[in-house]
Design a protein around this nucleic acid. Structure first.
Length: 402
DNA sequence: ATATCCCGCCACAAT
DNA sequence: ATTGTGGCGGGATAT
C-alpha cells in the first residue's frame, strides 16, 4: 500500500504554495461523489477510487466511513462498496433517529424524554448574522444514548469500534435528529460524543484528539450539505448547524437534502482546480529547502475530469445558488435563512429538570450529565451577563443542579 | 496565539 | 505471512 511518492518533476506546480485547502476531506468527498454519482455506477472499489482521485487509500477510508454512516454507500465486501447515492440518506437518517430514540428510552428503569423544542435565547445580534446559540438540549439525547453505549461493559474489541469514525458520525448525526436543536457547538459535540466518562482525569488534551475527528466528520458532512459550519454569536466559538432534513420531520418523501452551493466549504474556503492530495512528502524527513513547502504534484493521468467541481465557484450569496455536482431528489433550498424560528420558546426548564431528576445509578451517565450541566452553566452565566432580562425559571432550574 | 485538520505511522483485523 | 482497515496524534496551515 505504501504509496511511493514520485514528487519529482512537475513543472506545473513549481512554485505553488502548498495549500491544504485543496486537499481537504471535504473537497475530496465532493470529488468522490461527483465521480460516482451516476446512473451507471453501482459498485465502488476503494483502490479504484484512490487511484482516480489521486489520494492515498487511507483518505478513502475516511470519507467512505462517514458516507456509509449516512447511507450513501454500503459495504459490500472487502475493498468494495455499493453506491447508493443521495437517495439513501433519508432512510439512513430515519433509521438513525429510530435507533437513537430506542437507545434513549432503552436504559431499563428510567426513560429520558426527549424534550420538545424549548429554550433558545436570542442574544443581541451584532451583525444580524447568527441568530442564536444555546447549549442545545441535544445533550439530552446524546447523553443518554452515549451512556447506553458507554455503560455496557465493552470488550476491548468493541472499544475500537466505539471510536470509529463511522460510529462517531452516527452519534454526531443523532445529536441533531433527536432534538430540535439544529445547532451544536464544537465543544459540546466533542464532549458528548465518545464517552469522556473516564474519571475526571486525563481527558484534558484528550479532548483535542476528539475534536480532530469531529473536524474530519464535519468536513465531509458539510460537503454533503447535511450540516453547515457556524459559530456561536458573540463567543464566536465554532458550531454546527444541521441542514439535512428539510422542513418535514420524517416520512421519506418529506425528507430532502438541502443542496446549497456544494463548493463552498464552510463559510469560504477556496477551491483548488485539481484533485486532492497525492503525496508531496511533507517536511519531516526532508525539510523543505526554504520556507516554501514542497510542491504538491498531482498525478495528471486520470484525474482530469474531476475538475467540474471547480466550476461551481458560484459564490451565491443569498437568493440564488446552484446545485452541486450531485442532483438531489427534491432539492429544497435553505440558504438565505439568516433568521429562523423567530418564535419564542416556552421555557420548559421545569420539565427539563424533572426529566432529569431521576438520578442515574449509573456512574458514567451522571458524570456525563454533570459535564453537560457544567457547560450549560457557563453558557448561562455568559448569557445572563449579556442580557440581564432572562427568564427566571432558568436560574432556579440550573441551581438545582449546581 | 488559536482553530483547523492533513498526513501517514503502525496496531489490529481479515485473508 | 500478507493485505486491508482505520485509530491516532504530530505538527503544518489557516485565521
Amino acid at each position: 500500500m505504501a504509496s511511493l511518492p514520485p514528487p519529482f518533476l512537475d513543472s506545473g506546480c513549481r512554485h505553488h504554495t502548498y495549500s491544504r485547502k485543496q486537499k481537504s476531506l471535504g473537497l475530496l468527498c465532493s470529488n468522490f461523489v461527483s465521480l460516482y454519482d451516476r446512473d451507471d455506477v453501482e459498485s465502488v472499489g476503494l483502490d479504484d477510487a484512490a487511484r482516480r482521485l489521486g489520494v492515498e487509500r487511507r483518505r478513502i477510508y475516511d470519507i467512505v466511513n462517514v458516507l456509509e454512516s449516512v447511507g450513501v454507500l454500503a459495504r459490500k465486501a472487502k475493498n468494495r462498496y455499493s453506491w447508493i447515492g443521495f437517495s439513501g440518506i433519508p432512510k439512513a437518517l430515519d433509521e438513525l433517529k429510530e435507533e437513537a430514540l430506542r437507545e434513549i428510552s432503552g436504559t431499563d428503569g428510567q426513560c429520558v424524554k426527549v424534550l420538545e423544542d424549548e429554550d433558545e435565547v436570542k442574544l443581541s445580534d451584532q451583525n444580524g448574522n447568527f441568530g442564536d446559540y444555546k447549549p442545545s438540549p441535544a445533550a439530552v439525547g446524546a447523553a443518554s444514548s452515549l451512556c447506553s453505549v458507554a455503560c455496557k461493559a465493552r470488550s476491548v474489541t468493541d472499544n475500537r469500534r466505539e471510536k470509529s469514525l463511522g460510529l462517531l458520525t452516527q452519534n454526531f448525526v443523532k445529536l441533531f435528529l433527536t432534538t430540535n436543536a439544529d445547532t451544536v457547538s464544537l465543544d459540546e459535540a466533542a464532549r458528548l460524543l465518545l464517552g469522556d466518562g473516564h474519571d475526571s482525569s486525563q481527558m484534558r488534551n484528550n479532548n483535542a484528539a476528539k475534536v480532530r475527528r469531529l473536524y474530519d466528520i464535519a468536513n465531509v458532512l458539510s460537503s454533503m450539505n447535511l450540516i453547515e459550519k457556524t459559530q456561536q454569536l458573540e463567543t464566536r466559538k465554532p458550531a454546527f448547524r444541521w441542514l439535512g432534513t428539510k422542513g418535514k420531520p420524517k416520512a421519506d418523501t418529506g425528507v430532502t437534502v438541502a443542496i446549497p452551493p456544494a463548493t463552498k466549504q464552510w463559510n469560504k474556503r477556496a477551491f483548488g482546480n485539481d484533485i486532492t492530495n497525492v503525496d508531496h512528502k511533507r517536511s519531516k524527513l526532508n525539510p523543505p529547502l526554504d520556507k516554501k513547502p514542497s510542491k504538491a504534484c498531482l498525478r495528471s493521468d486520470d484525474l482530469k475530469e474531476c475538475n467540474l467541481t471547480a466550476q461551481k465557484q458560484l459564490q451565491s450569496s443569498k437568493g440564488s445558488y446552484v446545485f452541486g455536482p450531485f442532483r438531489p431528489a427534491g432539492a429544497t433550498k435553505r440558504i438565505g435563512d439568516v433568521e429562523e424560528k423567530g418564535g419564542n420558546k416556552v421555557q420548559d426548564w421545569e420539565s427539563l429538570a424533572s426529566s432529569f431528576r431521576p438520578q442515574y445509578h449509573n456512574q458514567a451517565l451522571s458524570e456525563l450529565f454533570a459535564h453537560y450541566m457544567e457547560a450549560w452553566k457557563s453558557w448561562y452565566v455568559e448569557v445572563t451577563q449579556g442580557s440581564s432580562n432572562l427568564q427566571q425559571p432558568c436560574k432556579s432550574v440550573i441551581n438545582q443542579f449546581l
